[in-house]
Write a protein that binds this DNA or RNA. Sequence first.
DNA 1: TTTATATATAACCAAACGGTTATATGAAAT
DNA 2: ATTTCATATAACCGTTTGGTTATATATAAA
Lengths: 104, 104
Amino acid sequence: MTDIYRAIADPIRRKILRMVSQKECTQSDIVASFSISQPAIKKHLAILLEEQLLLERRMGKFCYYRLNTPVFQQEYLQLQSELGLVLENKLAGLKHYLENLEEE
Amino acid sequence: MTDIYRAIADPIRRKILRMVSQKECTQSDIVASFSISQPAIKKHLAILLEEQLLLERRMGKFCYYRLNTPVFQQEYLQLQSELGLVLENKLAGLKHYLENLEEE
DNA sequence: TTTATATATAACCAAACGGTTATATGAAAT
DNA sequence: ATTTCATATAACCGTTTGGTTATATATAAA
């Protein structure tokens, strides 16, 4: 369901993740940190919410966003194990190559 | 220039990265591992090449692909430090909160 | 030399992305 | 009650993504 790869594909969304991880932010806090329009920010927030990496809380006319830490942590761990494999494979391939230098 | 986030956004491209990290593969090896068309695979390879995560080598009618390990490693490290910040921020925020429990 | 195989390219398509402007809604402050 | 401010939504736009089919090209094998 959660696609962290989609969520982090855009630099604006990565910066939003960093912002809300430090401190809960209102939408206008976030809008103020970028030079794009409020609806554009809204769409980025919608993607982050859709991928469940953000939680929102309504207080009067304000909407607060914060990191959904458990989900982010879990998804990030999975990402690391998936991409980590790429480098491990490379090392395994090299190891095999070295072990069989004389035989081939 | 290299945008690893773009490169890894698609699961097919992530699988290609894993494949070529184990062993140099021809394009038809790769095509055979998926159930999409050869031109579709070609486009994924084009994106991975564009982002410099793959190297290609021509041998007669075959085209071999392999991981561009130094670039992948470097970009992956940067990704980790960028995303790692998100969790570190969260911890720092929590620390600050605990330290100031009595004052607020 | 014909045939088969590997790769490349073109044309097309629908859907998603990333932005815009304009406007509506809803809550708070004057 | 009216204005102000935060957020939401609609309509639009150009580009990118991710796929297709059909076809061209280039090398290798029969």
